[in-house]
């Protein structure tokens, strides 16, 4: 085998391993536990967001669905279930609110108090009884 052929096979081999590695990494990329490092696409108050959804779900979905939003509101309750923490942002005068889902490792519940105004960044996932944000992180 000439030197040129050897070099060809070597480069091909390295290339194959590298592309294999990249495909493998992309295929099995773990889900993010939060979106704190991602670019914020919309900033809105909890009150405005819930009012918009309550009046027209479809048009509000166009604005916010699947977007990374930063929502500011008052903490109404903090719930915990099976390793997930939900912080519920709601004003006393409202009947609905924004339910923000946190991975347990992403929030220190002792640092968040009921009644406190917080800003939560997460993915707007849609509207059930409340607006739901997933993969949240909190700014105190």
């Amino acid at each position: 085998m000439t030197n040129n052929m050897k070099r060809f096979w070597l480069i091909l081999g390295v290339f194959a391993i590298l592309s294999g590695y990249l495909v493998w990494k992309r295929t099995f990329r773990p889900s993010d536990t939060n979106v704190a490092s991602k670019k914020t696409e919309a900033v809105v108050s909890a009150n405005t967001l819930i009012k918009a959804y309550a009046s027209n779900e479809d048009s509000t979905n166009m604005l916010y669905l699947n977007k990374i939003v930063e929502v500011t509101g008052k903490v109404d309750t903090i719930l915990e279930k099976d390793g997930q923490i939900s912080v519920y942002l709601k004003e006393k005068s409202d009947t609905e609110g924004v339910m923000c889902a946190f991975n347990k490792t992403e929030i220190d519940t002792s640092s968040v108090k009921v009644g406190q105004i917080v800003s939560v960044k997460g993915i707007c996932t849609g509207y059930l009884m409340d607006v739901i944000l997933t993969k949240c992180s909190v700014n105190l």
């Binding site: 295929t27 099995f28 990329r29 889900s31 993010d32 699947n66 996932t125 849609g126 997933t134 993969k135």
Partner: peptide, 16 residues
């Protein structure tokens, strides 16, 4: 019961 499909979280991002 009511749920949002997009609120299902998977370990692997591509599966989601």
């Amino acid at each position: 019961f009511n749920l949002l499909q997009k609120a299902f979280e998977f370990k692997v991002a591509l599966m989601q």
